[in-house]
Design a protein around this nucleic acid. Structure first.
Length: 137
DNA sequence: GCCAACGTTGGC
DNA sequence: GCCAACGTTGGC
């Protein structure tokens, strides 16, 4: 069981959009970065992830689950690009902001803090536990 | 809206 | 295989 973080601009596709799928899986397409794709390749069905809003909000707002493992990205003909499917699990009672993550010493090594441009990234079990604590779970 | 960081592309 | 040019992301 691994933990991940998925970034999305909420004005393009936000947490509310995923929740609106009613628990159905949504293709996490549009990733055009090898590092991010490689992380998706490593994902297993049932892995959990944070849903993070970039630009607007800059906070983790919900928990998602990997519903389907890596497969071709339906939005491109380019076979290099693959993606997983995710579904909404539950919202965070208290969203965890980027500022909070930066201010929290136990999260100082998070990719979210150090590698801002990486749109799909791993989260350690320790970091996950801290985020859950900050989120009120 | 700007800019820094970073990744990719393409000429040599 | 190097590196300059360019494009994109995302915080501010």
């Amino acid at each position: 069981m691994q933990y991940w973080l998925f970034k999305s601009e909420p004005d393009v596709f936000g947490w509310d959009d995923l929740v609106a799928k009613g628990g159905n899986a949504e293709e996490w397409n549009g990733v055009r970065n090898y590092q991010a794709r490689n992380f998706m390749r490593a994902m297993k069905k049932g892995d959990l992830g944070l849903f993070y809003h970039s630009n607007i909000g800059k906070e983790a707002v919900g928990i998602v689950e990997v519903a389907n493992e890596i497969h071709p990205d339906s939005t491109t003909e380019d076979a290099r690009w693959e993606c997983v499917d995710v579904k909404a699990v539950k919202p965070l009672p208290k969203p965890v902001t980027l500022d909070q993550a930066k201010a929290e010493p136990r999260l100082k090594n998070m990719a979210l803090v150090n590698n801002t441009r990486l749109s799909v990234q791993p989260v350690t079990a320790e970091e996950w536990a801290v985020v859950m604590e900050l989120a009120g779970l």
